[in-house]
Design a protein around this nucleic acid. Structure first.
Length: 459
RNA sequence: UCCCCGGUAGCUCAGCAGGUAGAGCGAGCGGCUGUUAACCGCUAGGUCCCAGGUUCGAGCCCUGGCCGGGGAGCCA
C-alpha cells in the first residue's frame, strides 16, 4: 500500500497498484445497485479521482452514504481502468475512512459554480474550488519558472528589506511602520520610534538591488511590496509580489532583451507544466489565453519609442477620452489601442519624457527623454516597467535637485555613483499582473490567495 | 478619490402602475440509474442591507448611511 496523489492515481500507469488516497469529497453519486461513486480531489491536479465505494464496506450505510461536498477522507483501494468515459482510471475502495465531516446545511461550497464575488467572501475555502486550485497551481508554476529563468541566466537571488526608510520615489504612497501607539502619543516622534527614524513597508526593492548589482553583477529580488494608494480597480492590490532583476553592465537594449526572454520563458513553462489548468482557463474564463500565449512565445515584441507611439496615436484617427500630446503620460486607453488594436501583441515603449519618469532613469543626450521602458500587453496594460539607471554622479544629483528630493536621504544610493559606478539596468514585473494575463482572470483579487485592498484585510 | 450599477432563500437571480414574496440551482427525504454539472417527485428555508421619511399600505418611491461590482485616475 503506497500513499499517492490524485494526480498520480489518474494516470494509466497507476492501474493495478494498491494505494492510499487522501483528500476532499467533491461529490457523491449513489447507485441503488448497492454502491456509490465518490469524486475525490486533493489539489494535486484539476481533475478528481473517481472512487467506487461498494455497499459491502463496513461503514457504507453509516458513513459513506452520508459523505457530502467538503468532507475529508482517506481511501484505500486498487486503481483500475475505468469503464466510464470521463476518466481513464478509478479506485475501487477496500476501505474509506472519514477524517472530517462538512455539514451540507452550512458548508458554503456547493458542487455548482459560484461567483468570484461570493468566493472572495470565503477566501479561506475558495482554494477548494476548481478555479482557485488552478490559479494556485499556475501561480506556483510561474514562481518556480521565474527562479529557474534567473538562476539559469546567472542572476543571484537577493533579499531586500521589507521594512525600509527609503522611498523609491514615484512608486506611490507608503504604509508607515511604527511601534508607537497613536492613542497615547499624540504626536508620533520618529526619534523615539523603534528604529529611531521614520520607516515604511517597501514599495520596491530596486534601490537596494542596485547596490548589489553594483557589486555582484546580476541580481533579482522576488518578494512582497506594499502600496497605500487608495485605488480600487481590478488591477491593483495594496500588497502584491514583484520580481525585480537588476544587472550591472546592462544597457536598455540588454534590459529589453532580458524582459522579452523572461516573459516568453514564463509563458512557455506554464503551458508545459500546467496544460490541464490552462485548458480550464481557456474553456471557462477566457477562450483566447492559450492562443495568445502561444503567439507571444513565437513572435517578437514590438519596440518603439514613446515619441513614435505618440505619432501613431495621433495619426490613428481614434477618438480618445484623454488628449494625446507629447509630454503627457499615456492613458490606459492609449496603451490598449497600441497593444490590442494597432500591433495586436506585446509592445515595449522606450525613451519617455523625463518629466513623467523618476529621477533614477538615465537621461538621454537629447536632455528631453530618459532610458525608460514599459512592456505593455493586451488586456492588462503595463506588466513590466524598467529603465537603464543614471550612473553619472553629476547628472543624478542634478536630477534629484530638479525634482526637489533631499539628497541626504539617498546618500548611500549616490555613493554607488561616487565609487566605481557602472552602467546598469533593471525592471519590475508585478506577479499578479502576469498571472492575470496568463490565466485571463479578470480581477487581480482572484490570482492572490488573500487579497489586501483598501478597506479589506479579512483573513 | 471620482463616475456609473447593484444589495430579495445557502448560491444565482426574477418581482408589479407602490397592495403584503417567486424560480432555478443547492439542501433534506423518497424513487431510479456504472454514475459523472446525473435524473424524477415531495419538503423545508426569507429582519426583501441598515436607519429615517412619504403613503391607508413600501421589496418597489424619497433622504442618509453601510457593503459589493464595473469603469477612471495612480501604478505593478
Amino acid at each position: 500500500m503506497e500513499k499517492i496523489s490524485v494526480a498520480e492515481a489518474r494516470r494509466e500507469d497507476a492501474i493495478g497498484r494498491e494505494v492510499l488516497l487522501q483528500g476532499w469529497v467533491r461529490t457523491r453519486r449513489d447507485s441503488k445497485g448497492g454502491f456509490s461513486f465518490l469524486e475525490i480531489n486533493d489539489g494535486s491536479c484539476l481533475g478528481n479521482i473517481q472512487v467506487v465505494a461498494d455497499g459491502t464496506l463496513p461503514n457504507y450505510e453509516s458513513e459513506v452514504k452520508r459523505l457530502t461536498t467538503g468532507c475529508s477522507v482517506a481511501v484505500e483501494g486498487v486503481v483500475r481502468a475505468s469503464p466510464g468515459r470521463e476518466q481513464p482510471t478509478e479506485v475501487y475502495a477496500t476501505r474509506v475512512t472519514v477524517y472530517g465531516w462538512a455539514d451540507p446545511e452550512t458548508y458554503p461550497l456547493q458542487k455548482k459554480r459560484h461567483s468570484y464575488e461570493f468566493l472572495r467572501t470565503i477566501a479561506h475555502l475558495r482554494p477548494r474550488t476548481n478555479s482557485f486550485g488552478a490559479v494556485t497551481r499556475v501561480r506556483n508554476a510561474v514562481c518556480f519558472s521565474i527562479h529557474r529563468f534567473f538562476q539559469e541566466e546567472g542572476f543571484l537571488y537577493i533579499h531586500t528589506p521589507i521594512i525600509t526608510a527609503s522611498d523609491c520615489e514615484g512608486a506611490g504612497a507608503m504604509f508607515r511602520v511604527t511601534t508607537l501607539d497613536p492613542a497615547t502619543q499624540q504626536r508620533l516622534d520618529d526619534a523615539a520610534d523603534f528604529f529611531g527614524r521614520r520607516t515604511y513597508l517597501t514599495v520596491s526593492g530596486q534601490l537596494e538591488a542596485e547596490a548589489y548589482a553594483c557589486a555582484v553583477g546580476k541580481v533579482y529580488t522576488f518578494g512582497p511590496t506594499f502600496r497605500a494608494e487608495n485605488s480600487n480597480t481590478t488591477r491593483h492590490l495594496a500588497e502584491f509580489w514583484m520580481v525585480e532583476p537588476e544587472a550591472a553592465f546592462f544597457d536598455l537594449e540588454d534590459n529589453m532583451n532580458l524582459a522579452e526572454r523572461f516573459l516568453k520563458r514564463i509563458f512557455r513553462d506554464v503551458l508545459e507544466q500546467c496544460p490541464e489548468d490552462m485548458e480550464f482557463f481557456n474553456r471557462w474564463v477566457d477562450n483566447t489565453v492559450i492562443e495568445t500565449l502561444r503567439q507571444i512565445i513565437e513572435s517578437e515584441f514590438v519596440r518603439l519609442t514613446y515619441t513614435e507611439a505618440i505619432e501613431i496615436l495621433k495619426k490613428s484617427g481614434e477618438t480618445f477620452e484623454f488628449p494625446v500630446e507629447w509630454g503627457r503620460d499615456l492613458q490606459a486607453e492609449h496603451e490598449r489601442f497600441l497593444t490590442e488594436k494597432h500591433f495586436r501583441r506585446p509592445v515595449i515603449l522606450t525613451d519617455y519624457p523625463r518629466q513623467i519618469k523618476p529621477f533614477y532613469m538615465r537621461l538621454n543626450d537629447d536632455e528631453k527623454t530618459v532610458r525608460a521602458m514599459d512592456v505593455l500587453v493586451p488586456r492588462v496594460g503595463e506588466i513590466i516597467g524598467g529603465s537603464q539607471r543614471e550612473e553619472r554622479l553629476d547628472v543624478l544629483e542634478r536630477r534629484m535637485e530638479e525634482m526637489g528630493l533631499n539628497k541626504q536621504n539617498y546618500w548611500w544610493y549616490i555613493d554607488l555613483r561616487r565609487f566605481g559606478t557602472v552602467p546598469h539596468s533593471g525592471f519590475g514585473l508585478g506577479l499578479e499582473r502576469a498571472l492575470q494575463f496568463i490565466t485571463g482572470m479578470g480581477n487581480i483579487r482572484d490570482v492572490i490567495p488573500f487579497p489586501r485592498t483598501p478597506g479589506s484585510a479579512e483573513f
